[in-house]
């Protein structure tokens, strides 16, 4: 158990173990192998940031390079899933959802309902998201809320290597379409990951810091900032429950409500744009179902309602950080009626 690997390696290991276990698992995406049709090295890239590196050597043509035709290959993954395969397709950056969204939200998400419960579409769509990479407005967005809005999709946002592996294995074994969000800044994060295969059930939030004063609900990269803030605040005598949602559809309402009923204070931290995002959703949930417990207004820590800027000076201002989270927690603690 003491072995440490990166978030990126954890995802790679999950894919490799599931491909070895189940021959219906296949993978595809732009440069997932890298070098298809060229004269040089095969497996030259293993994905644009190397997440699928090495799978070609082990599994050959079960991992495929695709043309830059997201509609075609994401849709092909959906179609193959409805025909008994378990494809894992990579939509390189989630910002590219615009060119293939029909296949995700009109086809994959709706087959089961439209077809009266007879379709099973076990497709996984892996996608990179998030700011902090100096990649500007079209390669940095945090769009998970848009997928969580669609009935029929499951939306997974792992924050650690352990979770990335277990949630990816669950995603592959799951019989519904799953959108799997990988934060590119987290790829190099190291953590303890068991060597064996394991699945983390969806809809089960993790509590990464415990406290009775304030509940911080967050996900993805923001979990790390929230924990940093909680550790700083603990030294000042403010104890925070930090809830890592892990999946936003399904959503672990029970863990959130149990915590807020105990603390009476809520700060939601979300890297996505502030209108109709995870933060507003959680705030609404708590306002509706735990209103009586609230001792202070709900605080939301999100980026401003602007596109992700390019310049490092601006991007650093854009992304929420531990200081902003600590400030929000302090303000709910100091609230007086």
């Amino acid at each position: 158990m003491a072995r440490k690997i990166t978030y990126k390696q954890a995802i790679n290991e999950a894919l490799a173990q599931e491909m070895a276990r189940d021959s219906s698992v296949i993978a595809m995406g732009e440069d997932n192998v890298g070098g298809a049709g060229a004269e040089g090295e095969k497996d030259a890239w293993g994905g644009v940031l190397g997440v699928t590196k090495g799978l070609y050597g082990r599994f050959g043509d079960r991992i495929m390079d695709t043309p830059i035709s997201e509609s075609a290959f994401i849709g092909a993954a959906v179609g193959a899933a409805a025909c008994g395969m378990r494809p894992v397709a990579e939509l390189m950056f989630v910002d590219f959802m615009g060119v293939c969204f029909d296949q995700i939200f009109n086809q994959a998400a709706k087959f089961r309902y439209m077809f009266g419960g007879k379709a099973v579409t076990p497709v996984v769509i892996r996608t990179m998201y998030g700011a902090g990479f100096r990649a500007a407005a079209q390669h940095s967005q945090c769009l998970y809320s848009m997928f969580a809005h669609i009935p029929g999709l499951k939306v997974v946002v792992p924050s650690t290597p352990y979770d990335a592996k277990g949630l990816m294995i669950q995603a592959i074994r799951d019989n519904d379409p799953v959108i799997f969000f990988e934060h590119k800044v987290l790829y190099t994060l190291e953590g303890e990951v068991p060597e064996g295969a394991y699945a983390i059930p969806f809809g089960e939030a993790d509590v990464v810091h415990e406290g009775d004063d304030v509940t911080i609900v967050t996900l993805g990269r923001m979990v790390h900032f929230a924990r940093d803030a909680a550790q700083t605040l603990a030294k000042r005598g403010i104890d925070c429950d930090v809830i890592d949602l892990r999946t936003i559809s399904p959503l672990d309402e029970e863990t959130i409500l149990e915590s807020v009923n105990r603390t009476g204070r809520l700060v939601v931290v979300d890297e996505s744009s502030p209108r109709c995002n995870v933060a507003t959703d959680i705030a609404a949930l708590v306002a509706q179902k735990a209103f009586a417990a609230l001792k202070a207004p709900i605080e939301q820590v999100t980026p401003p309602h602007v596109p992700v800027p390019f310049s490092d000076a601006l991007e650093d201002l854009y992304v929420p950080d531990a200081a902003r989270i600590a400030q929000a927690v302090t303000s709910v603690m100091e609230f007086k009626r």
Binding site: Y162, G166, P194, G196, A197, Y198, A199, D206
Partner: peptide, 12 residues
Amino acid sequence: VDDLLKFKRLDG
């Protein structure tokens, strides 16, 4: 409890 959960999730 987390450690027990992690153990229990392992295949097999």
